[in-house]
Design a binder for these strands. Sequence first.
DNA 1: CATTTTGTTCAGTCAATATTGAACAAATGC
DNA 2: GCATTTGTTCAATATTGACTGAACAAAATG
Lengths: 161, 161
Amino acid sequence: MNLYTAAMADNNPQSVIETFIERIGLSIEADGLPRIAGRMMGFFVIHGGPVSFAEIAERLQVSRGSVSTNARLLAGLGVIERVSLPGDRQDYYQLCEQPYVRLIEGHIQRQQAMEVLVRDVRKKIPAALKPTRARLNELHGFHKTTVQQLQILVKKLENQS
Amino acid sequence: MNLYTAAMADNNPQSVIETFIERIGLSIEADGLPRIAGRMMGFFVIHGGPVSFAEIAERLQVSRGSVSTNARLLAGLGVIERVSLPGDRQDYYQLCEQPYVRLIEGHIQRQQAMEVLVRDVRKKIPAALKPTRARLNELHGFHKTTVQQLQILVKKLENQS
DNA sequence: CATTTTGTTCAGTCAATATTGAACAAATGC
DNA sequence: GCATTTGTTCAATATTGACTGAACAAAATG
């Protein structure tokens, strides 16, 4: 029994999983990644186990080129990883451990970059412009607190698996 | 003395503020908003006080149409607000209190939507597919914990102002 | 009331990016 | 060595969404 027949068991045929994959795709796209990367992630949440390069292309109805590009993208993010299956020369991919933590870590890095940027600008604003400096302080505090909180989030996620 | 002459006091003339505004723009763009909205935000961090519709257009070198659209977008997010100045029929805008908290609240809502989505899908996956359900549980936990943590972040930000 | 100022809207343009598909290279098996 | 399988690369295409600017409406001014 495969996943599609399984999904067919409920009211809306195989569409439950399909739409799930699609929605994850959109959500990930909103995160700045290509939609196909998002759909692949959704697919891996459902399938998990090693999936062949060819199967990804077929199930998601995308070109081999896209699979290649986006698989490497996701692998670079630490969301999926390549595994080799003995006796098969295709590439296989599977979900990493802690796949979501990696995404958060990306956010942290961007926030940290912003924190530095804001601090640098503040340093260069003349002391006379008090309100501007105050606003920059507030923005700096925002980024700093956000980073701290995201780091706590990462710790919690690491524990809960 | 205006802000540009002030910025000129340091090594790289008025470019410090310009590039700051530009970088904020890019950062906000990565958050899913139009770049002009981001540049406007950067501008308001520097200027804060009521700024006229016309001045925004001029300083940022964008069309009135863009100012109109993006100002309303930011106002909708609760980042800036319209104020009226007696004796002037132009629109003026200024930074809201707690401007950044609002952005986080947007994230929270999206994460909550995802949490619901994942929970719904999980409910429809047959119990026999244990590993799939386990992965959905993990994803659900991810969103749930993220929401909690973001809510704590909001509280902290509210206190620190 | 006519004129000017000001914000909104929307069709059209433009730019950025994702996606494809074909050409290619590397590896495998015969 | 030749044919086949498989992943990569890249130029061409498609798609998406931002941005503009002109037409418009509302309000103020004289």
